[in-house]
Amino acid sequence: MDLFDDLPEPTQTSGPVPAELTARPQATKEEEEEEAAVEKRLKRKREDAECHADHKEERGGEEVKKVCKEGLPVLKGYVAARRGEREEMQDAHVLLPDMSVCLSALPGQVSCVSYFAVFDGHAGARASRFAAEHLHHNLAKKFPVENVDKLMKKCLLDTFRQTDEDFLRKASSQKPAWKDGSTATCVLVVDDMVYVANLGDSRAVLCRMEATGGADGQRRSLTLNLSKEHNPTIYEERMRIQRAGGTVRDGRVLGVLEVSRSIGDGQYKRIGVISSPDVRRLQLTANDRFIILACDGLFKVFSADEAVKFVLNVLQSPPSPLQEGSAEQRPRPTEEEEEEVRFEAACQQLASEAVRRGCADNVTVILLSIGF
């Protein structure tokens, strides 16, 4: 029996993006500054990559399995975070394109492991920061050494439980005890298999391109939801809370907590707020374009399909003068560098647009490009 809840067939389909749906307002000063910073970030990335390459040469034969096998996807992560109108930034995030640095050894048939995560804190930022610092290390300790696909769900369940227990132990030892909690949505990529584990209402969605079948060779985008939200208005979640002795008022646990699963929130654990994530898996294909991983601050003002269309529109826009170069004699960017600039811009603009649309919450967006 398969342990995983495999993703259902995609139900949302969108064709070529209509101009009236994707037109963006004139860039604000903040967006212009973000675009101006894009090349600086990319320059630093290139310099870091060169330093890492030099370091590998110095270490000689110590580097093993650092390059994915031919035909496997390469994921690159881009992140944008906005505080919104909140007094404190309570989100946290992790980007580990090469998680093998955390593993003692890669399983025999595995070539690449990547990890990306968003944590949306509430009642403080301590739970989200703790999860960002510790969850992937717990995952590395429990990572299967064989039968990866068969054992991965148990590994992720154990990892979330361990992280939650560790935080609750630390929280209860404080005077006064910490009341913080956090959602968690993690994307783990093992070669070409994606595992998504999530608690709460942060989400992950995939953009997959599909041929329309016409003679013009056009393709349409499919939006696949990779995660399941947990809030007390969902029947199964509400029933679990009520069986544990809790109540749901105004769509919240005890009229206070918006989510029904989380890391932390020790005061709600006895009334059915659990730390067991939903785990889903999906095999990536050459038609997959990107994954959006974001907290609910984004999805309060964007539907999943709208967010995918917004990113596609930025990726398909003509290069800005900044990308094309200036009067100064700068080397012409490569196709790969131009692609990185577009994804960086799409990520930053998506987060800024969420704030512009009136989201007062913290907004954190991770955009993962998928290349074969």
Rank of each mutant, 00 (worst) to 15 (best):
D2M: 06
L7D: 05
A23V: 15
P25E: 08
K29G: 01
L42S: 04
K43V: 13
R44A: 15
K45I: 14
K45Y: 12
H52W: 09
A53E: 15
G61M: 11
K65G: 09
V67K: 13
V67M: 10
C68L: 12
K69V: 12
G71F: 03
V74F: 09
R83S: 01
G84C: 02
E88A: 01
L95V: 10
A105H: 11
L106F: 05
Y115A: 11
A117I: 02
A123C: 09
A125M: 11
R129A: 07
A132Y: 05
H134S: 12
H136Q: 08
H137E: 15
N138H: 14
F143L: 07
N147D: 15
L156M: 14
D164R: 01
S172T: 12
A177S: 13
K179Q: 15
D180Y: 06
V190L: 03
M193T: 14
Y195P: 06
S202Q: 03
M209R: 13
M209Q: 13
A211L: 10
G217D: 08
G217S: 07
N225P: 10
S227Q: 04
Y235D: 13
E237V: 06
R240D: 09
R243A: 13
R243M: 11
R243P: 00
V253G: 01
G255F: 06
V259A: 01
G264R: 06
G264I: 07
S275L: 04
L284T: 09
F290T: 06
C295E: 00
D296S: 03
G297M: 00
F299P: 02
F302A: 04
S303C: 02
A304V: 02
A304N: 15
A307C: 03
V311P: 04
L312V: 08
V314M: 04
L315V: 10
Q316V: 00
P331D: 11
R332D: 11
R332S: 14
E337Q: 14
A345Y: 05
Q348G: 12
A351W: 01
E353T: 12
R356S: 12
T364K: 01
V365H: 02
